[in-house]
């Protein structure tokens, strides 16, 4: 099949070697599959070395979406690309674990910013708070 499918309507931005994308509140099975296909295509087409998926708005991850994320990570790794899933909400993390899913192999980051840093991107203004002056004896 040729051409870029846009079934998901999820924008995928490119920042240098990194593809950045974010999922909305929820994902039905069809959109999840379309998202997987589209992202895989973009990885190969653009030779991305890293992918950041911001899921901070996603309110539910069931076994289907979890499997999609795992598959994506594995596929990307085979293509030489590192995937980081960032910003998982606490209720989603708890539910996933209780569901029995650990998303083995999927790299996670607390925030999109941390994820980007892990992929080699840094904010120009230092995000590090400065100094330990308040701990001085």
């Amino acid at each position: 099949m040729t051409g870029v499918r846009r079934a998901t309507g999820v924008p995928i931005l490119r920042l240098g070697d990194v593809l950045v994308t974010g999922l909305l509140e929820e994902l039905d099975d069809r959109s999840a599959t379309a998202f997987l296909d589209e992202l895989t295509e973009r990885i190969t087409a653009e030779g991305a070395t890293g992918v950041l998926i911001d899921i901070s708005r996603l309110t539910i991850i069931d076994s289907f979406v979890a499997r999609t994320l795992s598959e994506l990570t594995t596929t990307a790794r085979l293509l030489g690309t590192r995937v980081i899933v960032a910003g998982m909400r606490p209720p989603v993390a708890i539910t996933l674990v209780e569901l029995g899913l650990r998303l083995d192999g999927v790299e996670t980051a607390l925030t999109a910013e941390r994820g980007m840093a892990a992929l080699g991107w840094f904010r120009t203004a230092s995000s590090q708070e400065v100094g330990h002056g308040d701990h001085a004896g």
Binding site: V85, A86, G87, M88, P90, V92, A93, I94, L96, V97, E98, R102, L103, T108, A109, L110, T111, R114, G115
Partner: peptide
């Protein structure tokens, strides 16, 4: 183990 797994999913 569950707690550790959930913390990791959060990215910590």
């Amino acid at each position: 183990m569950q707690t550790v797994a959930a913390v990791r999913l959060m990215g910590a």
